[in-house]
Design a binder for these strands. Structure first.
Length: 652
RNA sequence: GCACCUGUAGCUCAACUGGAUAGAGCACCGGACUACGAAUCCGGAGGUUGUAGGUUCGAAUCCUACCAGGUGUACCA
């Protein structure tokens, strides 16, 4: 039983005479924020005071009177308004950490009721290079999978690849009209990506050009309305003020839409060959969409092209995943569900959930203005339809207990509609959760792009991370009297530090936050970074090398830990709480709970390292004890980091 | 217009979902290597948690209003 569970059960009996409903009160037992208040604190006396009409301190005294924790705690102290502070006995911590030192699961007991969780993440579109948004989904999703598995759950990681959407029509159209045969045979994926981008650009060009007159008209109109508002003397009441502000904003918005449309048009117009292509393909957007519907309708030629394009696109994705060490159990793309879509819609219609509106089949959910469109006017299905079919499949075929979607938070409305539709549809017994994450921003506060406005490709991002890591590795190793690494070793460390840095930078933020992408921060080797922990790990390995001790023997032998100073005690106590960190991650799928535990732990180790020499320990017993702590620490780091998909190296 | 989200140190972010004096890391200033690895450690400075009210023993967290910003909003995924 964990420390917290033990405490809770003791408090449950101490509280039973004071309250009928002890559950919420027991939730108020937690580890202390400040070590000077002890190791754990119970805050339940305060709310009880109100309820029982006594002073909270009196209640606290009664609780302490009833409480029997003397076997593992010092005498409880009552502080402030009625906090009960608990300090664990040193020998009890020593015993606890000794037992964890002999446990390869580091004190984490496997889930009592394992669930089958399908984790849906990454979900890139083929032929569109992956970017930092996919990085977040991939890294967070992978960490969730690893942590769930470690906790004893069954996990199916599924990459819901976008291989059936509108972009495929664009590629097909591009291939038919603009393919560069030499480039295509040289690098198929790169050429397809170029074609996608080209068709997209030309479509945008025509759309922007066509929309400009309307936009300019709108601007004039809005400007006039604004002038009218401002001429009506000073805005008298708040409402008028608000209206004025909204109007100003509307004018600004229209103006920036015009600017962006003009930029798109100018970009093509100033590029003669591009402009010529644009002129030759005035109806490109519609024709590209037509290719998509032909594909969906079973057109043989388009299907052939699809079959030809897909393998290379998937291989390109796999290459990235292998560099990131992200694995999927399934990669059923959207195309996989195509045969099921018609049935989904007809079933929804039969159940009266889907109705026609403006020619599209829609599910209307009470309280939401936007409909959930399951079939478009032209008969094509949408990603809503696919998502429904996917849930059905995961329930009927995979027998999932829970489905987790690691997707950008901007899609929260879609998922809210999806889950509600599902419930009405009769698939309410699976727990669906949208694990949302924020946007990666550039230093201008806008979504992270390259200077030319393109998404930053994931492959080049990884390259850059490893290259930067390499220069740090070189610099450090060159500074030594005798380099500790071979060139191959350096490359290996650079790979571990570089990719670890990228992942950690993402994971240590609260996933819901938008965060600013910054190379220097991402690959900083100081502070709250993967490197800090990887370095701590390498230092421990250094101790074992220095003393010529086999770590295997330490872990498998008799593990008796002595706590002789505050630094040892703090580290030992921290190491007994790995299970909380794992629980905290899984409670709401927040990997940053684990990163902060790891950082705290590594920090406590660094203090221990500075104060408590293993090599010069006062006695052989103490040296043995410290070796045990070091080994446990190393395993905590490597295990904890591995749950985040981050590797460690013995030498760096 | 409607809906949702955010506002915390100069910067980037935490805060165990209502607990004690709001914490880290960068950056800044000052210390510690004849070394179990300085990719480290120790110390300093830095805050009216957007503003104003309210709820209560107790508020960054809950409620109300305002201010500032973001996102989504019918056939892209």
């Amino acid at each position: 039983m964990s420390i917290l569970q033990t405490l809770k059960s003791r408090f449950a009996s101490a509280l039973s005479s004071l309250s009928d409903d002890t559950g919420p009160l027991l939730e108020m037992i937690r580890s202390s924020q400040d070590p000077k208040f002890g190791d754990f604190q119970a805050n339940c006396a305060m709310p009880l005071g109100k309820r029982l009409g006594k002073s909270p301190r009196e209640i606290a005294a009664e609780i302490v009177e009833n409480l029997d924790v003397s076997d593992f705690c010092e005498t409880p102290e009552i502080a402030g308004p009625g906090f009960i502070n608990l300090r664990l006995k040193d020998d009890w911590i020593a015993e606890r950490v000794s037992s964890i030192a002999g446990d390869d699961r580091l004190g984490v007991t496997p889930a009592a009721k394992p669930r089958h969780v399908v984790v849906d993440f990454s979900s890139p579109n083929v032929a569109k290079p992956m970017h930092v948004g996919h990085l977040r989904s991939s890294v967070i999703g992978d960490a969730i999978c690893r942590t769930l598995r470690f906790a004893g759950h069954k996990v199916t990681s599924d990459n819901h690849i976008g291989d059936w959407g509108t972009q495929f029509g664009m590629i097909i159209y591009g291939y038919r009209n603009f393919v560069d045969a030499a480039a295509y045979s040289r690098d198929q994926v790169a050429e397809l990506a170029r074609l996608y981008k080209l068709v997209n650009q030309l479509s945008d060009y025509h759309a922007a050009k066509a929309g400009l007159p309307e936009l300019r008209l709108q601007l004039d109109q809005r400007q006039q309305e604004l002038d009218q508002l401002t001429s009506d003397s000073e805005p008298a009441d708040k409402k008028a003020k608000k209206k004025l502000k909204a109007q100003r904003k509307a004018v600004e918005e229209t103006r920036s839409s015009i600017e962006s449309a003009e930029a798109k048009v100018a970009h093509v117009d100033t590029d003669a060959p591009l402009a010529a292509q644009a002129n030759e393909h005035p109806d490109i957007a519609r024709l590209a969409r037509q290719e998509t519907s032909k594909l969906h309708a079973g057109d043989e030629q388009n299907q052939q092209l699809w079959d030809e394009f897909l393998p290379a696109c998937l291989a390109a994705l796999d290459q990235i995943y292998s560099r990131l060490d992200v694995r999927f159990d399934l990669a059923l793309g959207e195309s996989y569900y195509n045969p099921m879509l018609a049935d989904v819609v007809s079933d929804l219609r039969a159940k009266g959930l889907a109705t026609d509106s403006d020619g599209a089949a829609c599910v209307f959910i009470e309280g939401n203005n936007a409909p959930f469109i399951v079939q478009k006017t032209d008969g094509a299905y949408t990603y809503a339809t696919t998502d429904l079919a996917t849930i059905q499949y995961r329930l009927d075929e995979l027998h999932a207990d829970e489905i987790v979607y690691v997707v950008d938070k901007r899609q929260s409305e879609h998922f809210s509609l999806l889950f509600k539709t599902c419930e009405l549809w009769g698939f309410g017994d699976v727990k669906c959760q949208h694990v949302s994450f924020g946007t990666v921003m550039g230093d201008d506060g806008k979504p992270f792009k390259t200077r030319s406005g393109d998404n930053v490709e994931l492959g080049s991002l990884i390259d850059e991370a490893i290259a930067r890591a390499r220069s740090v590795v070189d610099e450090n190793d060159d500074r030594r009297e005798q380099p500790a690494l071979t060139p191959d070793g350096r490359a290996r460390v650079a790979q571990i530090v570089g990719t670890g840095g990228i992942k950690y930078a993402d994971l240590h933020h609260n996933r819901d936050s938008d965060y600013v992408f910054d190379w220097d921060k991402m690959l900083a080797t100081t502070g709250d970074t993967a490197t800090y922990m990887q370095y701590a790990y390498a230092r421990i390995c250094g101790i074992f090398r220095e003393l010529n001790v086999d770590r295997q023997k330490i872990a498998s032998g008799k593990t008796t830990v002595l706590l002789t100073c505050p630094e040892e005690r703090a580290l030992a106590l921290q190491l007994t709480q790995f299970d909380y960190a794992v629980d905290a991650v899984l409670a709401d799928y927040r990997p940053n709970q684990l990163t902060s535990w790891l950082f705290d732990t590594a920090g406590k180790f660094s203090v221990f390292y500075a104060h408590c020499s293993v090599k010069k320990a006062e006695s052989p017993e103490l040296q043995q004890s410290r070796l045990i702590l070091c080994d446990l620490m190393a395993r905590a780091l490597s295990t904890g980091l591995s749950l985040l998909g981050i590797e460690t190296a013995d030498v760096m």
